[in-house]
Amino acid sequence: MDTAAVIVTVAGLGLAAFVLWYFFFSARQTASAVSSSGGVQEVSINVKGGYSPSVIEVERGKPVTLNFYRDEENSCSEELLMPDFSIRRDLPAFQTTPVELLPQVAGRFEFTCGMGMLRGALVVK
């Protein structure tokens, strides 16, 4: 191998490692749900190249409303999947879509876009 091939190979491996770290191991923004006067826990989530916040903490046994605001037209973010709660929602661009659920079991429940590239989690305590 000549010098150029070594440089390209090392740069490619470095970029692949960065992508793996970014999507699977980087720190995620965490938010706790705020209870309204009616006892419903609410969180607003911005969808733009990912979920912000991407980790939401809620209390078990209390109703939850997740308000997803999709701030883009990227086709990857047009669908929300929460398989543990049997939820599939279309997220229209530049609109807020409320998702209501009642978590009965403590644990960590993943949610993704339809393609599985955008990831978030609901942590039930």
Rank of each mutant, 00 (worst) to 15 (best):
D2F: 07
T3P: 02
I7N: 02
V10A: 12
A11I: 14
A16T: 02
W21E: 04
Y22M: 12
F24D: 15
F24Y: 15
A27L: 11
R28K: 13
R28C: 02
R28N: 04
Q29K: 15
A31N: 09
A31M: 12
S32A: 13
S36Y: 05
V40H: 04
V40P: 03
Q41D: 01
E42T: 12
V43Y: 07
S44K: 12
K48G: 08
Y51D: 06
P53H: 01
I56W: 09
I56L: 14
E57S: 13
G61Q: 09
G61L: 08
G61W: 07
V64R: 01
V64D: 02
T65F: 06
T65R: 15
L66I: 06
F68S: 06
Y69Q: 06
D71T: 04
N74G: 05
S75T: 12
C76K: 10
M82A: 00
P83D: 12
P83I: 09
S86F: 14
I87W: 11
I87P: 05
I87M: 10
I87G: 07
R88Q: 13
D90S: 15
L91F: 04
P92R: 01
P92M: 01
P92Y: 00
A93N: 13
T97E: 04
V99C: 11
E100W: 01
L102G: 04
G107R: 01
R108D: 13
R108H: 09
E110R: 12
G114A: 04
G114I: 03
M117N: 03
L118C: 13
A121S: 14
L122A: 03
V124E: 07
V124C: 06
K125I: 08
